[in-house]
Design a binder for these strands. Structure first.
Lengths: 199, 199
DNA sequence: TGTACATCAGTGAACGCGCGTTCACTGATGTAC
DNA sequence: TGTACATCAGTGAACGCGCGTTCACTGATGTAC
């Protein structure tokens, strides 16, 4: 059942996008190749025509998820450019917490990526660098020598905040809200926001 | 092969400790009941005598790991009490990054805990509250109304920093060191440490 | 304290199931003429 | 432009394997007398 080259490329993209979404939602070990293929409208045999192994697909999915996240971050500001307040509002929020499938893969898959092979680590590193660069753009108001350290911290910290907020959410919704609110304010200060005068 | 009540309780603890260690090291989905039992010197049948399911053991293991972490945090200060500088030195460090099996379960299992059931979420919430209380003790120098927000942020942020540092370590060791150094300094400021005069 | 026996912690074979991966096959595509 | 056929993307049955869980059984423990 050969298909056109364009259709084959489209199928490949569908596999990567389905994998990225399902991995975020249920974990890398929690989703099988059969389900990914089905979600993409194919059989698992087709997956092995496009990728040599599940591990290879994991690498592509991580890279794709980070690329998509970076694009969203870059346009998080209402004006089109990234404003740090808007960026933090969308990253450190109940909305991001509840959008596991569509959110940031750093937050959704953080602890699992440490257990993948070096190829995945390389794609993950590239993605992190890109996200940090985006946050640095949003920190233009800070002294140049401070931007990178604070961008690195914000990228990593938001992932931890989301993971903790999600972990406690089922049993302690109030604690989940509290950690988000606290981190939003404290990371705002890290980013150079003036403390809220209404507080 | 009945054993004494004390021996049975000891076996139960061995199962919990083996599970906690292996889950941190290779993920909750990445370790089976057979391996946990073997590590504890038992067969998988014995495990089902002590716990109704793997899920139940996951809850115990998460709770136990957090309890052990909290004990270590409380005594992180050289003087016996928790000093925030010493605490951050041990949490946000290359040593903690490389000690996956013995480190903090918030950092090691963060993204997986969000996918567990409500019982696990409840144990996790209790553990987080305890860790936050410990960090609050170390923040005694800050105004009382600031302590909890900053403690919450530090607990969650260090988990994200460790997850990111571990994820990039295989392919980008320099980036891994950089994110740790940056986060150590920035979280120090969050905790009220004076900026390093030698910098 | 000594004996008889019910209790029950632990054993290990067996269960159905879904995993990642392979491969002989199909049939539309895309090329050579 | 029309025909013949080699290519190869996708199909689906099959593989061995390890998963979580069950259960009939074993034999030392701990209790009743």
């Amino acid at each position: 059942v050969k298909v056109t080259r364009e259709k084959a490329a489209e199928n490949r993209r569908a596999l990567v996008r389905a994998a990225a979404r399902l991995f975020r939602e249920r974990g890398i070990d929690g989703v099988g190749v059969a389900e990914i293929s089905k979600e993409a409208g194919l059989t698992h045999g087709a997956l092995y025509g496009q990728f040599p192994s599940k591990d290879a697909l994991v690498g592509e999915a991580v890279a794709d998820g980070l690329r998509a996240s970076n694009e969203r971050w870059r346009t998080a500001g209402r004006g089109g450019g990234p404003a740090i307040g808007d960026l933090l509002d969308s990253l450190v929020s109940a909305r991001h917490r509840d959008n596991l499938a569509g959110g940031c893969p750093v937050a959704a898959s953080a602890s699992e990526i440490a257990r993948q092979d070096e190829a995945v680590s390389a794609r993950f590193s590239e993605g992190i660098e890109a996200l940090v660069a985006t946050v640095e753009l949003a920190l233009a108001a800070l002294p140049a020598e401070e931007r990178r350290a604070r961008a690195l911290t914000i990228v990593a910290a938001q992932a931890g905040v989301m993971a903790v907020a999600r972990g406690v959410a089922k049993a302690s919704p109030a604690l989940s809200e509290e950690v988000i609110a606290a981190a939003r304010r404290v990371l705002g200060e890290v980013a150079g926001e003036a403390p809220d005068p209404s507080a």
